[in-house]
Write a protein that binds this DNA or RNA. Structure first.
Lengths: 132, 132
DNA sequence: ACTTTTTTCTCCTATTGGTTGTATTTTAAT
DNA sequence: ATTAAAATACAACCAATAGGAGAAAAAAGT
């Protein structure tokens, strides 16, 4: 359902078959019914991180294999996976996003005096803006 | 309560604070109550993979950072918040603290043009400094 | 063909993820 | 020293769903 659960489910199935394990065998290893394993593989159920780790151990693979990162150059916002995620967000004030950018930049500045100066600058701006 | 949930919860907290975000702000980004965020960070609730991915996006880090095994004996001397930042950055704790101050000030600036201008300024500074 | 195993699909309910509320404590700003 | 914002804690509540039990197709042996 959640897209990521489907993707992970497919991966689980793939690895399980790679080991020549049946759903029943995997189910026994992680202590759930084989029907439940099906739901994991189909992605119809929201898997907990705990279970994912269990499965990773049962299949003897690092958990990270289930989270194959996208290519570095891919623009995040345009990513289809992110785009149609249900509900909420994306309506949050842009100040937050801007803040991220600012913070990243600021942390790259090596010169201490420069950083201190910038903070003083910001203080001044805030003071002016709020003073009237 | 599952150990892994606790470990992940701690990392969420670390990274969130690294961005200078409050629990409320993170909660809004992922569409849950701040009390629920608390549960995540404390590991009292079993987090779904879906949520973890949401949080990873909100904190702009790859999901895999939550599964990085760290040796028990290794003291976290280096600032944990910055360790997750992509790219090369100075890992001085002072920069972190300064960053928070800057971020807080930045968020108080109402004028959008001013904020944009500041970001451009920062970009310029970084460019000059790194150009060498 | 014919068991036997494996996988799929449909109901059902026990669990818990998630909310709301309140109250206390810490931290930070003025 | 005061005030405000953020974090921690706990309790009660409900809707969503994780997970199980059963029947039944598909696959795979034999």
């Amino acid at each position: 359902m959640t897209n990521i659960d489907k993707a992970i489910g497919l991966k689980i199935k793939e690895i399980r078959k790679g080991w020549g394990l049946s759903q029943i065998e995997l189910a026994e290893r992680i202590g759930v019914s084989f029907q439940q394993v099906q739901k994991y593989e189909k992605g119809t159920t929201r898997m907990s991180v705990f279970r994912l780790q269990q499965i990773a151990e049962a299949l003897e693979v690092p958990v990270s294999v289930f989270f194959i990162e996208q290519k570095a150059g891919t623009p995040q916002v345009a990513d289809p996976q992110i785009t149609y995620m249900e509900g909420e967000s994306e309506s949050l004030p842009s100040v937050n996003k801007e803040g991220f950018v600012l913070l990243k930049l600021f942390r790259r500045i090596k010169n201490k005096k420069t950083r201190e100066g910038l903070i003083r600058l910001l203080r001044g701006i805030v003071e002016i803006e709020e003073k009237k």
